[in-house]
Nucleic acid binder design. Sequence first.
DNA 1: TACCGATTGCACAGACTGATCAGGAGATCA
DNA 2: TGATCTCCTGATCAGTCTGTGCAATCGGTA
Lengths: 163, 163
Amino acid sequence: MTASQDVQLDALDARLLTLLDEEPRIGVLETSRRLGVARGTVQARLDKLVARGAIRGFGPQVEPAVIGFGITSFVTLEISQRYGHRAVADHLEGIPEVLEAHTITGAGDVLCRIVARSNADLQRVIDQIVGYDGIVRASTIIALAELIPYRVLPLVRTAAIGS
Amino acid sequence: MTASQDVQLDALDARLLTLLDEEPRIGVLETSRRLGVARGTVQARLDKLVARGAIRGFGPQVEPAVIGFGITSFVTLEISQRYGHRAVADHLEGIPEVLEAHTITGAGDVLCRIVARSNADLQRVIDQIVGYDGIVRASTIIALAELIPYRVLPLVRTAAIGS
DNA sequence: TACCGATTGCACAGACTGATCAGGAGATCA
DNA sequence: TGATCTCCTGATCAGTCTGTGCAATCGGTA
């Protein structure tokens, strides 16, 4: 699962990632100035992080809630033994409202994150999900408020040695 | 919660977001060429999306699993009525391994996503979480495999009108 | 028909990128 | 101590992009 070898970050990597997260549009040159290192160093560090997979990408982070999908829910699925996980994953991949899915331990087989335009719309999506033989039943939890929005930076600082 | 008014995307927005997601480093000019529109249009669209909050940012998307945190888990917390959600959120915010947290409906009060270096490390993090008076107990689900990695693009295409 | 927002095409100066190279600093090993 | 390696530095070069502003155009609307 873990791609190749784990990437060990250092303090400079952590500062670099933090700075880029806060001001992604400043460019490599300005970044190097802020960090007090040579431009080539910044480019080399970035290339390395991307090459090793530590950075998945720099794409725009779209906020589902702002483009009309204000409801977030976590749905636990119980899948039929006769169907493989792969088949279920394929089914789920075809539903845009399914933002991610994991196989899990415990009471349930798959946990997925689902967004919808409204509670009624959520019902529609869930119906679509369970309208597949491989899925026996679904248990839905609705997210009421976002206490902590997704973040990785604190973890990056923890992971960095000598910081 | 939803910042201002929902942003209604159109086909061009969807194509723009898709292209930027696939090749974030191509720059505005190249983007305009690929989309067949004027450079100013691309800039205006992007500015608008950012201003309205549809795009949260362009920061590097760090992959926790690659920097040493290979274990992902979802932990449901039951919190004491005497403490507010806010207090619990503050507590959780101080723990880097807590990547996100939501208040939820159903059997439990808070659902959070937690990563750790190993199962033993996960135990340490959970102990840290429950070592707080406001939290009565924690129920942990471990993610075994990532069936669908987090994605938003299919949703963007769905949200766009006239696509 | 007049108005309005959005898009276009163009222009300019300034700044950045990608690539490359020689030299230096620090760590490792025999 | 000396050889070797890796990483960082500082600099150069041509080519390209960005930020900005403006006048004209287009499509839909009052």
